[in-house]
């Protein structure tokens, strides 16, 4: 699925990743996912489908939840990106991690970085989401192991922890 960069000249792209300014040379159509994983060695975003269906490559782009496999790197020029690696200091992280552990919300773990980012994104907008809102908020992130039930429990549990 990787678009072939061919022989076209690379461009300089500047953006912020996890609060750090980055400047690199890349083909403008290179996928943000590949730049993160190969150039910046941030391997937390995973490739599951390469077509924006599974959400394993989710990152926050200026606060929006996006599939990094669908974003050409030229499009993030000047933008601010948060990956799973950078989100560890976020106030929601500790409650989410605890709740995921407690509920058994990660089985194989491949969807987990994307799921956590989707959960952070959701809880920032809706600190006390109803179950239907949790389902909707995670609908762009596929999990083949858990049947989602434990993930719903964890997101609801994390919200309760934060509310206390």
């Amino acid at each position: 699925m990787t678009p072939s960069p061919g022989t076209n000249a690379k461009c300089e792209v500047s953006f912020t990743v996890n609060g750090e300014a980055k400047k690199l040379l890349a083909h403008p159509m290179e996928r943000l996912l590949d730049v993160l994983r190969n150039d910046l060695k941030l391997t937390g975003a995973k490739e599951g489908c390469g077509e924006g269906e599974c959400g394993s490559c989710s990152v926050l782009l200026d606060g929006m939840l996006v599939n990094s496999c669908l974003v050409p790197v030229a499009q993030v020029s000047g933008a601010s990106i948060d990956t799973i690696e950078g989100i560890s200091a976020h106030a929601l992280m500790h409650p989410l991690q605890e709740a995921f552990l407690e509920c058994g919300s990660a089985q194989c773990g491949i969807c987990t970085p994307g799921m956590i980012l989707a959960a952070v994104h959701l809880l920032e907008k809706k600190p006390e989401p109803a179950l239907a809102e949790i389902r909707e908020g995670l609908a762009g992130n596929l999990c083949r192991c858990t049947g989602y039930i434990q993930i719903f429990d964890a997101v609801a549990g994390a919200a309760r922890r934060v509310a206390k």
């Binding site: 599951g48 489908c49 077509e51 269906e53 599974c54 949790i134 389902r135 909707e136 995670l138 609908a139 992130n141 596929l142 999990c143 083949r144 049947g147 989602y148 039930i149 993930i151 719903f152």
Partner: peptide, 17 residues
Amino acid sequence: NQMTNYIMPTSVDVPPI
């Protein structure tokens, strides 16, 4: 042979189990 047209259950498709 794509996730776009081979459809697995998402978070809105599963019942309470």
